[in-house]
């Protein structure tokens, strides 16, 4: 079962910036235990661009699709047996990166 694991940061109360070593160590464990599929940190929402080509011509808009205090700062994709395993790992992930984590299954 695949889960999208989103790292949620808060613009008004951001997590600490010194977490990379902890995240690296956690990633190595994910790989060793066979759960790791993909991971990546994202650039700030200022770097986002939205394209809407459902109409006559493509509309390009600067910025994220939704402005909010909380935003997606990075993602993992994990392959784990069930939600309990995902939630246990997510609890560790939240500690490792000092941010909230959302766990959402792929359909």
């Amino acid at each position: 079962m695949r889960y999208l694991v989103s790292v949620i940061d808060d613009k008004s109360n951001p997590g600490s910036t010194d977490r990379q070593p902890a995240i690296n160590a956690f990633n190595e464990r994910l790989i060793a235990e066979g759960y790791w599929v993909f991971a990546g940190g994202l650039a700030g929402t200022d770097a986002a661009t939205v394209i809407d080509n459902r109409g006559e011509q493509a509309m390009v808009t600067d910025g994220p699709f939704v402005e909010s205090k909380e935003y997606l700062a990075g993602i993992w994709v994990w392959e784990v047996p069930d939600l309990d395993v995902a939630l246990t790992l997510a609890a560790e992930a939240s500690k490792a990166c000092d941010r909230k984590i959302e766990v959402r299954p792929f359909s």
């Binding site: 079962m1 047996p81 069930d82 939600l83 309990d84 246990t88 766990v103 959402r104 299954p105 359909s107």
Partner: peptide, 14 residues
């Protein structure tokens, strides 16, 4: 169903 909440007795530590 969608999130695959398991149908089992939780692990001893949980």
């Amino acid at each position: 169903k969608a999130a695959r909440i398991p149908y089992r007795i939780p692990a001893a530590e949980d």
